[in-house]
Nucleic acid binder design. Structure first.
Length: 502
RNA sequence: GGUCCCUUCGUCUAGCGGUCUAGGACGUCGCCCUUUCACGGCGAAAACACGGGUUCGAUUCCCGUAGGGAUCACCA
């Protein structure tokens, strides 16, 4: 487990807004968690307050260090910086127990000796009668406590009346106290339950606004009962709707829900794109689609958060990503894409490669929806001869009128200087003398030079490749036995083929 | 099943009683640009779940119905 932090950290600031993101480290930082974190971050920053991070690792069996690392990594990637030290909930178990015992001493809690079998029996009858399972309070008023027997500590919750939460997103939500039972605060092994831990930690950390998924809305009523018994300040609640999959059900692995690391590595997204997409999912500011972090910080408010769950749309995310990709700095893109290409071609980049890559970005980024596609579209520059041909390229070569490529090769060999203008003039002249459209010449050339059917402008490609490599690649293509090449080629391994889809 | 929540184009949303013959974006389709694919430009199809109220007037307010969702542990 990670570093311990027995105290909840810095003292609660006076008056300011304090939000928190409190994931349990039982898996990666998923998309819903990322959005919750983003909303909390934005709300805190908007109000000039604090945004804290707490790892809820009280479930010892399911919490892992890998998950903690993944969550922190994801937060950093999304640039959701938190204030103060990370609070590890497990390390605060003693404080949680202390509060539970204070509640016990004050008569707001009691010891319950019901056995697991008794509880299971209660569950059975509840099921049979189609009622929700509720602890029947059999130890609530008993004083004949068996000495030394295992027991839990339960909250003595109000049984009549009702509670209303003025939720900032959901509005006022009222539930009858009769619907709630006496929840367990301290387990029989003395460890705190989640219900106890959140309340105590939120209080000790000075959290003023609890912004979380609305799967916690029901919990809020029970937590409020505890807060009131303790006489602590009640936080403002805002329960945001969950993100659903395309079928409308809560997003899960079944929908290919991935950790944010996968959005970065496998899907090749830019963090600002994911952030923008997540922000617009369930929140809006007029017709604005592209919102910078500065604008978001200035505009964000709980009033803008929708009350109905929204569906995750990969297509739109990709589109947003494409927009950010086109706007991104070429040097930055080159740096992000380089490792992907290096692993594809199996060698490290030289300084020259770096420059070539960076120069190619301006054109390539216009047609790439993500970093993987971008890498895939740039990789042909760095392949060593003979370069692999994909099926579409082979088809282009096969369909090209006989002699066309050879004629083009001859014309190109005579071109001087080897520049975009010179190349364009030469090839266009040849097309004219041959009486064919430019495309008839350009397509087989494109295939020969790039191994693909799509690429940036042909003349730019040739200019970048240089005379020797360009001519060499054409010679290689001329030598391909097209009759047997198709299908037998091991070469249609584009990076896109390796790209994982959610 | 109990409780709670939700319901505008396929999707994300704008709309906060009259400006709505309902706006934007993604996706889809068509056209233009063009050496390919994109990018870009132009255009099209596409929604207020249903039924009652309230009101001079409902997409906007209220109530039902239907549909969807969340939650019902000594998990978090």
């Amino acid at each position: 487990m990670g570093a311990s932090s027995p105290s909840a950290g810095t003292a609660p600031p006076s008056g300011g807004v304090v939000t928190r993101f409190a994931p349990s480290p039982t898996g990666f930082l998923h998309i819903g968690g990322a959005r919750t974190a983003l909303f909390n971050w934005l709300f805190a920053r908007h109000h000039g307050g604090e945004f804290r991070l707490r790892i809820e690792d009280t479930d010892r069996a399911r919490s892992t260090d890998e998950a903690i690392a993944a969550i922190l990594d994801g937060m950093r990637w999304l640039q959701l910086d938190w204030d103060g030290e990370v609070v590890y909930q497990f390390s605060r178990a003693a404080r949680h127990a202390e509060v539970a015992h204070a509640l016990l001493d004050a008569g707001h809690a009691y010891r319950c000796y019901a056995t697991p079998e008794e509880l299971e029996a209660m569950r059975e009858t509840a099921r049979a009668e189609k009622r929700p399972m509720r602890y029947d309070g059999r130890w609530r008023d008993r004083t004949d406590h068996p000495e030394g027997q295992p027991h839990v500590i339960r909250l003595r919750a109000p049984q009549t009346g009702e509670v209303t939460i003025e939720d900032k997103v959901q509005g006022p939500v009222t539930v009858a106290n009769a619907e709630l039972d006496d929840m367990v605060l301290l387990r029989s092994d003395g460890t705190p339950t989640y219900m106890l831990a959140v309340v105590v930690d939120d209080h000790d950390m000075g959290v003023t606004h609890v912004i979380r998924g609305d799967d916690h809305l029901n919990n809020a009523f029970r937590q409020l009962a505890m807060i009131r018994a303790l006489g602590w300040a009640e936080p403002v609640y805002a329960h945001i709707p969950l993100i659903h999959g395309s079928d409308g059900a809560k997003l899960s692995k079944r929908h290919g829900a991935l950790g944010v690391d996968a959005y970065r590595d496998q899907l090749g997204l830019l963090p600002e794109a994911l952030e923008n997409y997540l922000l617009r999912l369930g929140w809006g500011h007029g017709d604005d689609e592209f919102i910078s972090r500065e604008q978001a910080t200035g505009w964000f408010g709980l009033e803008g958060v929708g009350r109905s769950p929204s569906r995750f749309d990969m297509k739109k995310l990709e589109s947003v990503n494409g927009q950010y990709l086109r706007a991104a700095d070429d040097a930055r893109l080159g740096a992000l894409v380089a490792p992907r290409i290096e692993s594809a071609i199996g060698r490290s980049f030289t300084a020259e490669d770096q420059q070539m890559l960076q120069r190619s970005m301006a054109e390539l980024k216009k047609r790439a929806p993500d970093l993987n596609s971008l890498a895939g579209s740039a990789v042909f520059y760095f392949r060593s001869r003979p370069i692999p041909m994909d099926d579409a390229a082979l088809r282009l070569l096969a369909q090209s009128p006989p002699g066309m490529l050879a004629a083009a090769r001859a014309a190109l060999a005579a071109i001087d200087p080897w520049s975009v203008e010179g190349l364009e003039a030469g090839v266009k002249a040849l097309a004219e003398t041959r009486g064919v459209k430019l495309g008839v010449l350009a397509q087989p050339l494109r295939a020969a030079l790039t191994g693909a059917a799509q690429s940036p402008g042909l003349f730019e490609v040739m200019a970048a490749l240089g005379r020797d490599d360009s001519l060499g690649r054409i010679d290689d293509a001329l030598g391909i036995d097209l009759a047997s090449a198709r299908g037998a080629s091991p070469a249609n391994e584009t990076m896109n083929a390796e790209r994982a889809r959610p």
